[in-house]
Design a protein around this nucleic acid. Structure first.
Lengths: 242, 242
DNA sequence: CGATTAATTGAACCTGGTCAATCGGAGTGG
DNA sequence: CCACTCCGATTGACCAGGTTCAATTAATCG
């Protein structure tokens, strides 16, 4: 049996704007089911015209795209609460692939209902656009990272970003959070080689700034790490949940 | 005297979805004036809470952001028809700066009317989100460029992108279009040094693939250049105009 | 005419890439 | 339980694409 929206476990997290009872009911009508996938599963495929949109209830994934020569660029990392498939919903075609990296539970919506939903619920439409604007903002930061930061700065930046999301989602305890990605994923996200990513991570470990191994990230002094990353820290705004 | 929307010169261009008479009237009510700026003028400032949003009527500009160490990342280039200030409109704060590179004419909207406009005109709200999704899509491609393409591939990619926009806007004649940016702008957009950008451009010139000098870009065989850029060419979709 | 900005070129240098080998853990089949 | 394989992490050696430094040219401008 599929969980009802009003019991949505994410809606209580302080990473998100709490949805009103009415909003929850509207989402309930829009929702057509839940999907559970195993690590490695492709959820949305680059270039495809996906019939469904998703909200991540739990688990983590990755968004990436491939160049014609086979190179891969990771665009960002999928965390609980992320809305997947906006591009398919708006443009009719995904510009990237979404793939599960852990067991994931997803809330499923039909693309065919999307347009209607958007027009009937202006407040939620606004929220969707808000999410798109945040995404654009974040991609801009990522661009600046790949384009201008050194390898050490870039990796520090990425780890701080992970940790901030982990904090907002309550995934951090004892300065530690799960981070189920591979070094290759991070390398492809930052435009670095796997080898250099590995060496840079071990440099960070040696300098006691951050340690990431066995799928666990530990950061003791995040401000210090953020400084090494040339990063201004600011409490991220609460996100709307779809 | 400010030009009326129904005479908007952009609405006829085949780069854009033609707005209906009704849409034009709605835009007219939303529009509060026109702004003309000279090259070098900052239109929107990173970190600011801009009170106004703009649509580019004519001229070209640049979006960029700065890191704490002074490095600059160019996010993309502003062409006629571009909507400026979505981030301010949605998030209340710009994530980047917008600056004029030529004389520009801008259509001005008040941010305070934006929310209302968004909720009253669901079709236009959809268009705004559509634009946001396209922007996200494009930033993803840019990310892949900086992260994975070589300098030669990246610069080829950028020149093809410029040319495609120029074609859609009717700015190309005799395989030539105006491109009023500096080599520094392009270097900062692609995460390359100015010197290497210069040398790579002259390599392209030597190989007869593309030549950009004196603010004029010339591409004779765009397919060949696109191939060198590892780029799949596809006719860009018509954009909605705000 | 001096000052400033953009383009250009050469040379030395270095960050990060490539190649290659090893190690350790997880899963699998016998 | 062991041999085998696969995948991710790790390390060392070498190399190159691209950066940095520096100097020159050319155009614009007050």
């Amino acid at each position: 049996m599929s969980t009802e929206c009003r019991y949505c476990p994410l809606n209580k997290k302080d990473a998100f704007v709490t949805l009103t009872k009415e909003d929850l009911e509207n989402m309930q009508k829009f929702k057509v089911g839940e999907l559970t996938v195993e690590p490695g599963t492709t959820i949305l495929m680059e270039g495809s015209n996906a019939p469904q949109l998703y909200t991540t209830l739990s688990g983590m994934g990755i968004r990436d795209k491939k160049l014609k020569n086979g190179e891969r660029q990771v665009l960002n990392f999928v965390f609980p609460g992320d809305f997947l498939g906006l591009q398919a919903g708006m443009l009719g075609e995904m510009g990237h692939t979404v793939e599960a990296r852990t067991h994931m539970r997803l809330c499923v919506f039909n693309r065919s209902d999307f347009l209607n939903f958007f027009k009937i619920h202006p407040n939620r439409a606004f929220d969707i656009t808000w999410l798109a604007a945040v995404e654009e903002h974040f991609l801009g930061e990522t661009l600046a990272t790949i384009g201008q930061r050194s390898a050490l700065q870039a990796i520090s930046w990425a780890l701080v970003k992970f940790f901030e999301r982990g904090l907002a989602l309550g995934m951090v305890s004892q300065n530690t959070m799960p981070l189920p990605y591979t070094q290759r994923d991070l390398a492809d996200a930052l435009g670095l080689s796997l080898v250099h990513t590995n060496k840079t991570l071990s440099k960070l470990r040696d300098s006691q700034l951050a340690s990431w191994s066995d799928h666990v990230l530990q950061i003791n002094d995040i401000d210090k790490l953020a400084k090494a990353a040339l990063l201004d820290r600011s409490t991220p705004a609460k996100r709307p949940l779809m």
